[in-house]
């Protein structure tokens, strides 16, 4: 639909612009805020693709939980604005060059592999349908294994951070 396309380009532009701010900004607090904006814009794009569940999860997990922890640490350590270094122009130049090379390589790869952008498949992406796929034998073991992996990482982090339990 027309409105969907307009919304897509608006939020895609916001996502890219704020992503540039994340890496370009010297003040770590501003970088963190810009990353929140990026994550929320990506969530809107998920919503436009017809998957409100993924959109909401994106906001809850990344923008709501992980970024709040980032900000908490930044505020607690009181991280100051990064100092200007003499080689700044040089580094910006090499960064832009590297980004261009990456885009060219990816485009070349896409042309060589003759892959074209395909429209989103027209399927029912409701929460119920997604849950059925996620808990089908095809994905169930991977899904459960991932949760065990996350739990192991969590326990590991607690053990590393706390010398005495």
């Amino acid at each position: 639909m027309m409105i969907d396309a307009v919304l897509f380009y608006v939020f895609a532009a916001i996502a890219v612009a704020s992503a540039v701010v994340v890496i370009g900004q010297r003040n770590p607090m501003y970088s963190a805020f810009a990353l929140v904006v990026t994550l929320c814009s990506v969530a809107v794009i998920f919503g436009l693709l017809g998957s409100p569940f993924i959109a909401v999860l994106q906001v809850i997990v990344y923008a709501g939980a992980i970024m709040v922890l980032f900000l908490f640490v930044l505020m607690l350590l009181n991280v100051k604005r990064e100092k200007d270094s003499p080689s700044r122009g040089q580094r910006t130049l090499s960064g832009v060059a590297l980004a261009l090379v990456t885009v060219l390589v990816l485009q070349a790869g896409a042309v060589l592999l003759r892959s074209r952008p395909t429209p989103a498949p027209d399927y029912d992406a409701s929460t119920f349908e997604m849950a059925k796929i996620l808990f089908s034998p095809h994905f169930l073991y991977a899904f459960e294994a991932t949760s065990i992996l996350i739990l192991a990482a969590l326990v590991g982090a607690v053990v590393l951070a706390k010398k005495e339990l």
Partner: peptide
């Protein structure tokens, strides 16, 4: 469709 989760997500943003 995801009403309750939406509220959860927005209150998570409210802390900002």
């Amino acid at each position: 469709e995801v009403g309750l989760l939406f509220i959860f997500a927005v209150t998570a943003l409210g802390v900002y």
